[in-house]
Nucleic acid binder design. Structure first.
Length: 183
DNA sequence: ATGACGATGCACT
DNA sequence: GTGCATCGTCATG
């Protein structure tokens, strides 16, 4: 994965990520759902300025931003965008590699539920704050490009209250591994 | 099928 | 003290 991949408008990054295979220590799958969070977006963690938690969002593109959600879950973002302080939340994968490791971490075997949601995905791939700020072009991360041009769908982002109508959630059309259907 | 709610950490007012 | 970029379980249609 070339770091220049992330150096373009963040919605383009969110769209371009669909179909890529993301692996962490060899475990992962095909990205089927993402959300874009711009600089200046009231729903973005960077909106109120730089803090200890969101520092990675203000760093260079092509790094991970990992945060804890609702006190329980870890969520993985890719820092990107030509603007500063933007990121793409990785929301769902179609599991392809390391199914046994994912099933063990999640204590669940149904491939439809292993990585269908940002918290589930992070748990299945073993992502924690230890990876916050880490470069995405090095181990433990590895990438495989899409095999074709994926068919995309878009809709409002999930679980937010501000800028809730903006269609900045992107998915792989027809995928059975989404966190929720697109309407 | 859809909806309510509790668990749990921490940034921020 | 409040509010989350969530998930699992339990309840009802």
């Amino acid at each position: 994965m070339d770091p220049a991949f992330f150096d373009r408008p963040v919605l383009d990054v969110a769209r371009a990520l669909i179909g890529w295979t993301l692996l962490v220590d060899g475990v992962g799958g095909v990205i089927v759902e993402t959300e874009a969070y711009h600089a200046g977006d009231p729903a973005a963690h960077s909106y109120a300025g730089r803090t200890v938690r969101n520092a990675a969002m203000f760093g260079p593109p092509g790094r991970a931003y990992v945060y804890r959600s609702y006190g329980l879950h870890w969520c993985l973002n890719v820092v990107g965008g030509a603007e500063e302080a933007a990121a793409v939340l990785i929301r769902a994968l179609e599991p392809t590699d390391g199914l046994a490791a994912m099933a063990e971490r999640r204590a669940l075997a149904d491939p439809r539920l292993l990585c269908a949601g940002p918290g589930r995905l992070a748990q299945a791939l073993g992502i924690t704050a230890a990876l916050d700020g880490a470069r995405l072009d090095r181990a433990p991360f590895a990438w495989r490009p899409p095999t074709g041009a994926p068919d995309l769908v878009a809709g409002p982002r999930i679980g937010i209250t501000r800028a809730a109508d903006e269609p900045w959630r992107v998915g792989l059309a027809g995928s059975r591994y989404l966190s929720r259907r697109f309407r």
